[in-house]
Design a binder for these strands. Structure first.
Lengths: 174, 174
DNA sequence: TCAATTTTTTAACCTGGGTTAATTACAAAT
DNA sequence: ATTTGTAATTAACCCAGGTTAAAAAATTGA
């Protein structure tokens, strides 16, 4: 189910009800979370109160505020449950240390970070090369289930446009 | 100098003159490159011929087309020398295998990928949350040397705008 | 030094998306 | 069923940035 064996063995279960926060921007939560069930969103809020969504998390997904976890800084984004969710957490530093001690764990971590890097490069590609309309089409195509589960507001904030703009894009496409 | 000991020991030197390609979009170059000297740009070209820049590479930097290297697909971008450059390369699969065998190498790889992930998250943040003007100011602030070395064209294509737009942004700021 | 080329700026015009606000459509709860 | 709140659509207006083209400035090379 989960790529990180270490989390299975050493993780602590965390349950969050719909609309609960796992952590908030400004916290210093240094944990890595693996999602077992449910649906969550990781999102930034700007000083002016504007929201943008970094990613959606579904079962099998993992997330940590890497800067918070690794550089001991405050979390730069919020993690909020969109549905009742079950997660498992471990202190990032424990995982990091365990990898230093144990080859197999270092490999798990490498593979996790390789997948994460590829995902983030993909997103970079989309922002650099695709229009908002194309990003929407790609997202809809790759995440047919999410399209119904999420509000248009959240989808728009993930794509980097306003909900009003996304409404116009959808109209254009039909 | 270089974080990846493995490359120092097993890498092959590669020299490229200014305006030479290290690899091109469509190639299946499965190597990881570490930059020893010089300056390069990694960039996409769309089917319509539009260019966008993924990243600039300076001494100490490392790059691979991760999908090409790991998933055995074709490179999705070009790597071009903006100045005469020296690089060292290793087959990504050799590095991956060596990490499987040797704990220390797995750790080097983990650390490299952790840094890469953090950089890419940073860029995601910038596209999601900053205007073109703010991205330019941040880039100029964090890369004072590059600002003189690069053409405005390249800076613009890195920021995700046209050179004309960047010229306007600079005018606005002075 | 002068011609050729590349880079940068400027201008005119257009378009996608932001903003605000009002309207409509849905959903949940009593 | 009716209220209450939330989500989505629409409209009007504005602006940043795209596009095209021309002009000016800076580099490069012979």
């Amino acid at each position: 189910m989960n790529n990180l064996d270490f989390i299975g063995k050493h993780g602590k279960a965390v349950s969050v009800a719909k609309h609960d926060y796992v952590f908030m921007q400004g916290d210093d939560d240094e944990n890595l979370y693996a999602v077992r069930s449910g649906l969550l969103k990781a999102y930034y809020v700007s000083p002016e109160g504007k929201e943008t969504i970094k990613s959606f998390l579904r079962p099998g997904g993992m997330i940590a505020s890497l800067t918070a976890a690794h550089k001991k800084e405050a979390c730069t984004f919020n993690l909020l449950a969109l549905e009742d969710s079950q997660l498992v957490k471990v202190a990032f530093s424990d995982l990091y240390e365990a990898a230093n001690q144990t080859h197999a764990i270092a490999l798990e971590m490498r593979d996790f970070l390789l997948v994460l890097s590829m995902k983030k490069e993909q997103r970079e590609y989309e922002f650099l090369n695709l229009s908002a309309e194309e990003r929407y089409q790609k997202f809809a195509h790759e995440n047919p289930e999410l399209i119904d589960q999420l509000t248009q507001n959240d989808i728009a904030r993930y794509l980097g446009v306003t909900p009003v703009a996304l409404s116009r894009i959808k109209k254009r496409l039909r």
